[in-house]
């Protein structure tokens, strides 16, 4: 693991994204329109539990939408380029970090638009710090799990459809604990209660990143 190489790979990802601005814009637009649809569907009134669940579902779909790109977009030439130059472990770490960063931006953006549209009533007696921490931890977990799944799906040569089939069940434990943590944060539970779930989310993140790190080289070996 070489931090310099990871940094380089991260810059490469960023450059790629800047090249394909329409894709990034697509993700952002997706979040905003999903929130708008939710707003229309809920008629602007959502109490705590539904508010929270809806938010996580929007986030989940945003994660699928964004992270599916992480491997599907690379063509044979890029693959060969990275394959000869970079250590696969650094590649996956860089992509997970980049994915987590993207998720962070996306989730904060969706949180903002969400509050804007659906109102902040459920947040009134919430512990916002806890909630944001849950959002960050959940987003990182989505990034770690779905990046590897995206790699598997793209290797299987069967893009987004397979990714959804493989990804949804595997992301479920993460999603459920994130929803639970979010709900507890919304009720304004003390740290001792919500902390358990946040810690738990962090643990899942660590497991997912470690596994991605260990398994990716086998995936990388050939096309």
């Amino acid at each position: 693991m070489r931090p310099a190489e990871i940094l380089h790979l991260l810059r490469l990802e960023l450059r790629l994204d800047l090249h394909q601005r329409h894709a990034v814009g697509g993700s952002l637009l997706y979040v905003v329109s999903a929130v708008f649809v939710a707003y229309q569907a809920m008629q602007g009134r959502a109490e705590g539990t539904a508010w929270n669940a809806l938010f996580w579902i929007i986030l989940l779909f945003a994660a699928f939408n964004t992270l599916a790109r992480s491997f599907q977009r690379e063509d044979a030439g890029q693959h060969l380029y990275l394959y000869t130059l970079a250590d696969p472990r650094n590649v996956i770490l860089a992509r997970v970090i980049y994915g987590a960063g993207t998720m962070l931006v996306l989730s904060l953006l969706s949180f903002g638009t969400y509050v804007l549209f659906l109102g902040h009533a459920p947040l009134n007696d919430a512990n916002v710090g806890q909630y944001l921490l849950a959002v960050v931890a959940g987003g990182t977990g989505f990034a770690a799990v779905l990046t590897l799944v995206s790699a598997i799906a793209s290797r299987a040569g069967n893009g987004v459809g397979l990714m959804a089939v493989l990804g949804f069940p595997i992301v479920l434990p993460l999603l459920l604990s994130a929803i639970k943590a979010g709900r507890l944060a919304l009720i304004g539970m003390p740290w001792t209660v919500t902390g358990k779930y946040l810690l738990w989310l962090g643990l899942v993140d660590v497991i997912a990143v470690t596994l991605a790190w260990v398994l990716f080289p086998y995936l990388w070996r050939d096309r």
Binding site: I170, L174, V204, I207
Partner: peptide, 15 residues
């Protein structure tokens, strides 16, 4: 591919 998915899935399933 199946082996990788299996290992990944098992870890999260145990969890």
């Amino acid at each position: 591919l199946a082996a990788i998915y299996n290992i990944f899935a098992y870890a999260l399933m145990i969890v």
